[in-house]
């Protein structure tokens, strides 16, 4: 596959703290790539390395097939998690300043800024100072500044924080449009709902390590474990007996709104769906039968909590406690 960015075996440590430990990330071109992980996992450090802001202690970053250089940052647009602009500077001037820092000529910069301001309907703010804008308004300006030089690679760190649902929707639409126009998007977040909606591929970083990588579909498939959710109308007892006969794990769940009983069944590896349905049909009035595909959120929590099962090298006692 054609990768726009490959970060290989990246390690980086600060005093008494390893931020990244041998992390490898391959970002395919033209996709939305999710970089997930709990707070403090090392996502921001990795992003800073990709942005050529800090250098890794070891490892290489390749951009478009060559080692990343300082001039490559002109092809990267970066929206940091902690956002800020020059408070005393006027919106228009500020956008022009950042556009020119990214290498646009002053005429080109002006054209692009105007274009984007019109698209997001913020042209009227040109002469306003940032300190006069609300937080959400400033975020919009910031988004424009990130994307207006048409970078090949866009990096958004928690882009939706601080946006109201309507503007978040606008943002989502613009991100997908940028992707459709050929940009690659790296998306760092712990908001799993937006990941499922937007991302094609993900990498899960926990405690400085890459613990999971792949396409969203493939990962969810990989983590699904022959579990099914069933709905039925009669007493749960026969269901329990049926599940014992199947040799499956049975866990009863609260009744749903239709007044039906619900349960999750985890079938043994050897058992097929067809057999299970047959057995269940005999014992109870089956109303629904559905495969459980774990959400990215479940996978995230499961993978992070499985920390204890991983080699002791990154088995940090402070986060190893069971918090489920």
């Amino acid at each position: 596959m054609d990768n726009i960015l490959t970060a290989r075996n990246i390690s980086k440590s600060f005093v008494g703290h390893q931020a990244l430990d041998d992390v490898t990330v391959e970002v395919p071109r033209g996709k939305v790539y999710g970089l997930l992980g709990p707070n403090g996992a090392g996502k921001t450090t990795l992003i800073r390395i990709i942005n050529h802001i800090t250098a890794p202690d070891s490892g290489t970053v390749e951009f478009n097939g060559h080692p990343l250089t300082a001039t490559d940052v002109r092809n990267i647009g970066y929206l940091p998690e902690e956002r800020g602009l020059y408070k005393k500077m006027k919106v228009g001037e500020q956008a022009l300043f950042f556009a020119r820092l990214k290498g646009l000529s002053s005429r080109e910069a002006e054209k692009k800024v105007k274009e984007w301001f019109e698209r997001l309907e913020i042209s009227g703010w040109w002469d306003k100072k940032i300190e006069e804008l609300s937080k959400g308004m400033a975020q919009k300006v910031q988004f424009v500044i990130t994307v207006l030089h048409r970078p090949e690679l866009l990096i958004f760190d928690e882009p939706f924080s601080g946006f109201d649902p309507i503007n978040a929707e606008v943002l989502k639409r613009e991100i997908l449009r940028l992707r459709d126009e050929g940009s690659t998007v790296i998306f760092s977040t712990h908001n799993m709902a937006s990941v499922e909606e937007l991302c094609d591929n993900i990498t899960l970083i926990n405690q400085s390590r890459n613990i999971l990588s792949g396409s969203v579909k493939e990962i969810r498939e990989r983590f699904s474990d022959n579990s099914y959710r069933i709905e039925f109308s009669d007493d749960p007892d026969p269901a329990l007996q049926a599940s014992l006969r199947l040799g499956a794990d049975f866990s009863l769940e609260p009744d749903n709104r239709m007044g039906l009983h619900q349960a999750t069944l985890r079938l043994p590896e050897s058992m097929t769906r067809r057999d299970a349905i047959a057995v269940l049909n005999e014992s109870l009035d089956l109303r629904g039968f559905e495969r459980v595909i774990p959400s990215i959120n479940d996978i995230f929590v499961r993978a992070v909590n499985a920390g204890g099962a991983f080699p002791p090298a990154y088995n940090n006692p402070s986060t190893d406690t069971d918090n489920e």
Binding site: N51, I53, Y78, E82, G84, L85, Y86, L101
Partner: peptide, 10 residues
């Protein structure tokens, strides 16, 4: 005000 990180990304 965190503008620094944006500047140093360019």
């Amino acid at each position: 005000n965190r503008v620094l990180e944006i500047v140093v990304s360019s």
